[in-house]
Amino acid sequence: MKFLYNKHNIIVLFVMVICLWGMYHGFRMGVADVLAYKAEYALKTWEKEKRLPNESEVGTAIINASSAVSWESANPEYMDLHAQVLLYKALLYWGDNKFDPISALSVELYQRSIKRRPNWPYTWARLALVKSYRREYDAVFYEALSNAVKLGPWEPGVHTTLAAAGLFGWSELNIESRRLVASNIHRGLRFSHSELASIIHRYRRKASVCGYVSVDEFSKSLCGW
């Protein structure tokens, strides 16, 4: 009886430990989710208003995003979010010596996120964008560009992000990559025509893009053929 009683106590204790672990893990996930939501809401606000945040706004968003990662360190979505916010901070220091180290952290976080979630096209596209802004048209950039197109050929967000990445560094790209960027834009015209046209106008690359795309109803409205 004593042996059975002790065995019963061990089982109860084991069940209690499992329950407590589950409660703690659920708590961590809940806290991380709330913090990530705050950072994501800020990002969406800046994107909707088409503006850069001020230092206070981006500082708060970075605290929330980095805290979400600290609570759930293996979550690739939070790493991606933190990287996005860091890029916004880096852009506040465009042309300043602070841009490089801040944007380098963004690159590092995107690469960590990709290791956890290698088939997510948006992270590849965002990695290509920050590499382009850093003017690093290397193997990492070309891999990001290629994988974003391959994994998200019909994703509107991938179309616009890669358009910005490719057109910003157009003069530095090889022929194959220019074709990849142009074909990505061409596919995206049926979903995000006005936004893509705006990006092309921003970088003054209408003639460049139109020289690579085939003639159809979507390219006609862009190129005026």
Rank of each mutant, 00 (worst) to 15 (best):
A144M: 01
A39C: 13
R187M: 01
S103E: 00
D80C: 10
P153M: 08
T45W: 12
G152Q: 08
G211C: 02
P118R: 06
L151N: 00
V31K: 03
K98D: 06
E40C: 02
Y41V: 15
S67E: 13
L173C: 05
M23A: 15
L86S: 07
F14S: 14
S70Q: 09
K150P: 01
L52H: 05
N6I: 13
P118T: 10
S208K: 12
K38S: 12
R187N: 10
V69I: 06
K150S: 07
V209Y: 12
R112S: 09
P76D: 09
A90G: 03
S67M: 11
E72C: 11
V15P: 02
E72S: 05
V158W: 10
W124I: 02
R112V: 12
I10P: 00
L180E: 07
E55Y: 10
N119Q: 11
S146A: 14
Q84I: 07
E72H: 02
E55A: 11
R187D: 08
A148M: 03
S192F: 00
N6W: 14
K48W: 14
E77I: 11
S103I: 01
Y133L: 15
R126D: 09
W225I: 03
R179D: 14
Y133E: 14
P156D: 00
P156N: 05
W46I: 12
K48A: 13
G169T: 07
S113I: 04
L35K: 01
F218E: 08
W225V: 01
A32L: 15
S73M: 09
C210F: 09
W21C: 09
I114W: 00
Y5T: 14
R190I: 09
E55P: 00
R126K: 13
E217S: 15
M1H: 14
L92N: 05
G166L: 05
E143F: 06
K220Y: 13
A90W: 02
R205D: 12
Y24F: 11
I185N: 02
R28N: 09
D96W: 05
W71H: 11
L167K: 02
V31H: 02
R134T: 05
E40S: 07
N147I: 00
P53I: 05
I114D: 08
S146Y: 08
C210K: 10
L87A: 03
L127T: 06
I10T: 10
S171R: 11
V149Q: 08
Q111Y: 03
H201C: 04
I63F: 15
L222A: 05
Y212M: 05
A164R: 12
W46V: 04
A197G: 08
V158Q: 08
S132Q: 07
V149I: 10
F168E: 13
S146W: 13
L4G: 03
I114E: 06
Y93D: 05
S221E: 15
I175D: 14
N75M: 08
Y5S: 13
V58W: 08
A65G: 04
V69C: 04
G169S: 07
R187T: 06
K50T: 12
I114R: 04
S66N: 04
L162Q: 03
